[in-house]
């Protein structure tokens, strides 16, 4: 229990640090982006929007502390200002419309990538020294490919040359968003290619990590003893070798998750998928700072929650962490 409390405390600090960083960045950056933005919109902004922008960049008259308090108030009420890329939609609405797409796509793909990659890594590690080892250079190549470029290649092959899947978007325009069969099947159909990209590109890392840990674990005495006990091979592989070999994968989940999320976000751009990534791309193009900050916050908090879940799983898997 104490472990969980400590980890929870750590995540609170991290969330606080990330959110405060988000507050601080616009204030410490050189140049004057606010004026540049206001200039760009040629007076199309309402006075309220101009005011909001000045507040974002700390140009208001309130003290820094007051600004900070207001900022926290805004974070908790979900008020991130108004998006310029989607003017005059509030940032929270833009986020609300796109977050669901990304969440479903990435969580499904990350879990799939982890399960398949770790599973394959387990088998390759178990049969070390066999022909399966020749998979390693291939998976290395796969894991070094930029996600978005792989996405481009996939689109070229499956959408443009073969016409098996749609080129871009999240669902057929003929469908209405809602909980109906037509929409869901269309969404799944449209998500197939982005999902394929993310899963294939993320498998390599998990596979190699697991293979190496598996080999290290296999020379442990307890695996040898399990064999000596005459346990069935499957039991030795799963309960003795794999369950122990998997633990480091879980503890390095944090880094890998950030990596996968980052890669997936850029992948969305290629598919023009209606998720956070595409929005981020548009925001970056339009220098829509409020939107970018909102996206950063949402992604960070989501990743933190995912990490916490991974930590929970770790505590469940490894009895040694349960005390002290």
């Amino acid at each position: 229990m104490r472990v969980l409390l400590r980890r929870g405390f750590f995540y609170l600090i991290t969330a606080w640090a990330a959110i405060s960083l988000n507050f601080l960045l616009p204030r410490i950056m050189p140049g004057d982006p606010a004026d540049a933005l206001i200039e760009k919109f040629h007076g199309k902004l309402t006075p309220a929007a101009v005011q909001a922008l000045r507040v974002l960049f700390g140009q208001g008259h309130a003290s820094l502390w007051q600004q900070y308090v207001d900022y926290w108030h805004n974070v908790f009420t979900g008020d991130f200002g108004i998006s310029y890329a989607y003017y005059p939609t509030p940032v929270s609405d833009v986020l609300g419309q796109s977050i669901g797409w990304t969440l479903v796509l990435i969580s499904v793909c990350t879990v799939l990538g982890f399960v398949i990659g770790t599973g394959l890594g387990m088998i390759v590690g178990w049969k070390r020294g066999s022909w399966l080892d020749s998979l390693i250079p291939i998976t290395t190549l796969l894991s070094s490919i930029p996600y978005f470029w792989f996405a481009i290649c996939v689109v070229l092959l499956f959408a443009i040359v073969l016409h098996w899947f749609p080129l871009s978007g999240g669902y057929a325009v003929t469908e209405t968003i809602g909980f109906n069969w037509g929409f869901i099947s269309s969404a799944v159909y449209y998500a197939a290619l982005p999902a394929l990209t993310i899963v294939v590109a993320s498998i390599g890392g998990w596979l190699i990590g697991m293979r190496n840990m598996m080999i290290t674990t296999l020379s442990e005495d307890y695996v040898k003893l399990a064999e000596a006990k005459g346990l069935p091979k499957r039991r030795v592989m799963f309960t003795y070798a794999a369950r122990n070999a998997m633990l480091p994968s879980f503890s390095s989940f944090a880094m890998s998750l950030g990596f996968v999320v980052g890669g997936s976000i850029v992948t969305e751009v290629v598919f023009n998928y209606p998720g956070i990534g595409t929005v981020l791309f548009k925001a970056a193009q339009a220098q829509d700072y409020p939107l970018m900050q909102g996206i950063f916050l949402v992604i960070t908090v989501t990743v933190l929650v995912a990490n916490m879940l991974a930590d929970l799983a770790y505590v469940f898997l490894d009895p040694r962490t349960r005390e002290g």
Binding site: P30, G258, Q287
Partner: peptide
């Protein structure tokens, strides 16, 4: 260690995007 761990769990790409966007 706390600092390193914080930087570890904050997803790097969105942070990089923000930083890059603010930099001239």
């Amino acid at each position: 260690s706390l600092l390193a761990n914080i930087f570890l769990v904050i997803p790097a790409l969105p942070l990089t995007v923000i930083l890059a966007a603010y930099l001239p």
